[in-house]
Amino acid sequence: MKKVRWGIIGTGHIAHVFASDFCHVKAGELRAVASRNKESADQFAAEFDIELAFVDYFSLINSHEVEVIYIAVPHVYHYDLVKACILAGKAVLCEKPFTINEVQSKELYDLARKHNVFVMEAMWTRFNPVIEQVVEWVEEGEIGDLNSIQASFNFLAPTDPNHRLLNIEMGGGALLDIGIYPVFLAQLFFGKPDFVQNQALIGDTNVDLFEQILLGWESGQLASLDASLISHNPNRAILSGSKGYIEIDSEWFKAKSCRIVSADNKERAVTFDFPGDGYQFEVDEVNRCLEEGLIQSPNHSWQDSLELIATLDEIRQDIGLYYPGETDPGDDHHHDEEDLHEHHHEHSHHKH
């Protein structure tokens, strides 16, 4: 397998974890990094032994030194950067959520198809060996009919109101950042839900801090999910079936172990001993797809990504959370500050 040359846009926390795991990739090299801050770019390049450091995203996007670009900046910048990569003919692995809404995502996947460029949302959890094992167990009928999923992703976010997680201008809130994981898990097994309910706590900066999501399917399955920026939780996932259940150990989205428990309480546990957090597996998948000449991954396809963001759009609509420049699907005008205020007035019972 030839060494695929990668570039990274962004030097924040997620870029660091990704770069740390990159040394475990089967066939790839980190050639370049870009940050709008020269010091950050240089430091990052030095830390991970990366040859090229750019102070401008577009210099990296247009560089002949890289074939694939990993985008690791806040959600609101994804759309413009992915678009620029596609137009420059560069393959893209873009952090989740791929964009802030379905309209943007659809436009980018259409553009990628038109330009025949590989694009994938970086749903790294999908490629974790534990998740692969769970998919196999469910497909083989090991727990009979899978009928419900419970999953959480909670952690304590920084309290600085300007932090990207709390900043509405940056696409902040629990749902897009971490709620996407439990929703992804439910849709991996059941597909797009037919019913969506959500109870959310909207904080002082007008983004969702905590939510409990109930998804339902006409064929009879349910998923009970939660995401929080203000609580601690074991962050386990349980898949319940007619013959037993599967528990994915803490923290389920980057787990190294899982167990299957039969109706008579016999337990079988599996542990995978992989290094790092497991970001190398999504890189291996991108490299494999490129070698096979694919423009999307069959394991996390454009359709999978679109169905995921469509559900997140519905959940946000349910709590009246819109980002600047977005149109309320029920309106034909953009929200300005006053509209946002009105919206939160209606949802004041969610306020704390």
Rank of each mutant, 00 (worst) to 15 (best):
V4L: 09
V4F: 09
R5H: 12
W6A: 08
H13G: 01
I14F: 12
I14A: 05
S20M: 12
C23G: 00
C23M: 12
K26S: 12
K26W: 00
E29T: 11
E29I: 09
L30V: 07
S35W: 08
R36K: 13
E39W: 01
Q43E: 14
L52Q: 13
A53M: 05
A53F: 02
F54Q: 01
L60N: 10
N62K: 14
E65I: 00
V66R: 08
E67K: 11
E67I: 08
E67A: 07
I69D: 07
A72D: 09
V73Y: 08
P74Q: 06
Y79A: 11
C85P: 04
C94H: 01
C94K: 03
I100V: 15
N101F: 07
V103S: 13
Y109S: 12
A112T: 06
H115Y: 13
V117Q: 08
E121Q: 11
A122S: 15
W124I: 01
V138C: 10
L146W: 10
N147Y: 15
S148D: 12
F153T: 03
F155E: 03
T159P: 00
P161T: 10
P161K: 04
H163N: 15
A174L: 01
L175V: 01
I180L: 14
I180Y: 07
Y181N: 13
L185S: 06
Q187K: 09
L188A: 10
F190P: 05
F190T: 02
P193H: 09
F195G: 09
N198Y: 01
Q199E: 15
A200V: 04
T205I: 02
N206M: 13
V207M: 05
D208R: 05
L209N: 04
F210L: 14
F210I: 01
L214P: 00
W217E: 02
I230C: 12
N235C: 05
I238F: 13
S242L: 07
S242K: 05
D249Q: 10
S250G: 00
W252F: 04
K254C: 11
R259L: 02
R259F: 01
R268N: 11
R268S: 09
A269R: 15
F274Q: 07
D277C: 02
G278P: 03
V283C: 06
D284Q: 02
R288C: 01
C289L: 08
E292M: 10
I295F: 10
I295C: 03
N299M: 10
L306H: 06
L308K: 03
E314L: 14
R316G: 03
Q317S: 11
I319E: 03
L321C: 12
Y322W: 14
D328L: 05
H333Y: 13
H335I: 09
L340M: 13
H341A: 15
H343L: 14
H349K: 04
H352I: 09
